[in-house]
């Protein structure tokens, strides 16, 4: 059992079987996924990297059961519909309710039956455990910086003990310094909670730097072009970006990306 009370002995994870999804665009149907198959180990940190329009967000929406799809998504041996999915989208600031204080925002994801006092206690414990600033909790979201809002959103998802955490370019609105801080925090949270993370990024260095493995997606109909295991030692620091091992992985991914992209001006 880990800190969040999840059973880690069972080595399950995420299985995506024969995922197909079509879109109607200007009266024409085009396929974004045709029988996509994916396996993610439980507790792993996986990055997805790929060209625009390859369905990264659609994949996350399918796992979160926000769109219809054909095929099957199994999370820890349950159908995705029945499991708890944590989802942080690109415009995550819009998912905070400005009329609720940050602690009330966090409590939105917790069971309503739980006593208010114990809910509050759990939030405070979580903040203290990860050295987060508890003075944030009584503020309103609009009184907070982008980085602080990100922390609230992250805690809100993690305190629900999700079976999987989906991150869709969560740091795209932060400046470089804040980004580094948040990357550090997310790794710390992931390592202590052992939650399975699926991370979508446009930034190849970020995608490699954070993850255990990287999936390179093709243009639609989307296939996995590469699954790259990233065996760089942890804890990682920013210096790792200059090492030969890092550059080798990066070039390996980029070569395939460019070969598939076939971009024209």
């Amino acid at each position: 059992m880990n800190y969040l009370g999840q059973d880690l002995k069972s080595k399950m994870g995420i299985a995506i079987k024969n995922l197909s999804k079509n879109f109607l665009y200007q009266g024409q149907s085009f396929s974004i996924f045709t029988n996509l198959n994916l396996q993610l180990k439980r507790g792993s940190f996986t990055s997805i990297f790929g060209p625009n329009g390859c369905g990264k967000t659609t994949l996350l929406n399918a796992i979160a059961n926000l769109v219809d799809f054909e095929g099957e998504i199994i999370i820890n041996s349950h159908q995705a519909k029945e499991s708890r999915v944590g989802y942080i989208c690109q415009k995550h600031a819009d998912s905070l309710m400005p009329w609720l204080t940050n602690i009330k925002n966090i409590e939105l994801g917790m069971d309503e039956e739980e006593v208010t006092e114990t809910k509050k206690q759990r939030v405070f414990n979580f903040f203290n455990r990860f050295d987060l600033d508890t003075s944030l909790l009584t503020k309103y979201p609009w009184q907070c910086s982008g980085g602080e809002q990100q922390i609230i959103v992250l805690v809100r998802e993690l305190i629900r003990r999700p079976d999987i955490l989906l991150l869709d370019e969560p740091f795209s609105s932060l400046d470089f310094g804040k980004r580094l801080l948040m990357q550090k925090l997310i790794i710390k949270l992931w390592q202590e909670t052992h939650i399975t993370v699926l991370f979508v990024s446009h930034d190849i260095e970020e995608a490699i730097y954070l993850a255990d493995s990287l999936l390179l997606f093709s243009r639609p109909p989307t296939k996995t072009l590469q699954k790259v295991e990233i065996s760089l030692a942890r804890p990682r620091s920013i210096e790792i970006l200059g090492t030969e091992a890092f550059k080798k992985i990066k070039m390996f991914v980029l070569e395939d990306f460019v070969a598939n992209a076939n971009e024209k001006y």
Partner: peptide
């Protein structure tokens, strides 16, 4: 209601 908030209601399965 913004799409982000609609998604939150759905993923949290709020009554």
């Amino acid at each position: 209601l913004s799409q982000e908030k609609i998604n939150l209601i759905k993923t949290y399965k709020l009554p």
